[in-house]
């Protein structure tokens, strides 16, 4: 399935992600890593769960505000439910063991020039490229 190349919207979105990451550090002193924020909301709750819940609430609601203001957010999921669940469980195990995901390591960690984050980001990017190659071009499924 083809998707449209959107350099301007993607750059704008990336800049907004960076602004949010900067503000979370400036106001709350926290890394804007979705894994870390989410993990603190899984029981047993982290003692500082309130700001995490507020951040999540904002992240869920703002795309709806964007849509109601006339924006559109394309969405397509070209995989089976079984693959989605399997992939989701692997993502959960991996981000827990690896202490972070794209936002925590890939954006905030690299911005701090953390060697751990640079190593983790290189690893998960290579793993994702290899996985998609194998699924789409070796096994041949989608």
């Amino acid at each position: 399935m083809e998707t449209e190349f959107t350099p301007f919207m993607s750059l704008l979105g990336g800049i907004l992600i960076g602004i949010a990451a900067t503000l979370l550090m400036a106001f709350h002193g926290r890394i804007a890593g979705m894994t870390g924020i989410l993990a603190g909301l899984i029981p047993p709750l982290s003692p500082d769960w309130q700001w995490r819940a507020a951040f999540m609430g904002g992240a869920v609601i703002s795309p709806l505000v964007y849509i109601s203001a006339g924006g559109s957010i394309p969405f397509a999921l070209p995989i089976s439910t079984a693959a989605l669940i399997f992939g989701g469980i692997l993502v959960g195990i991996g981000v827990y063991l690896g202490s972070g995901c794209t936002s925590g390591h890939g954006v905030c960690g690299i911005a701090r020039l953390s060697p751990r984050s640079i190593a983790a980001t290189a690893t998960f990017m290579v793993a994702a490229f290899a996985t998609v190659y194998v699924i789409r071009h070796v096994i041949g499924g989608a």
Binding site: F86, T123, F124, A127, A128, T131
Partner: peptide
């Protein structure tokens, strides 16, 4: 952990 995450990301796209 990062490798497992990358594989899951490559499967699910999320």
């Amino acid at each position: 952990g990062a490798a497992i995450f990358g594989i899951g990301w490559g499967i699910a796209g999320f």
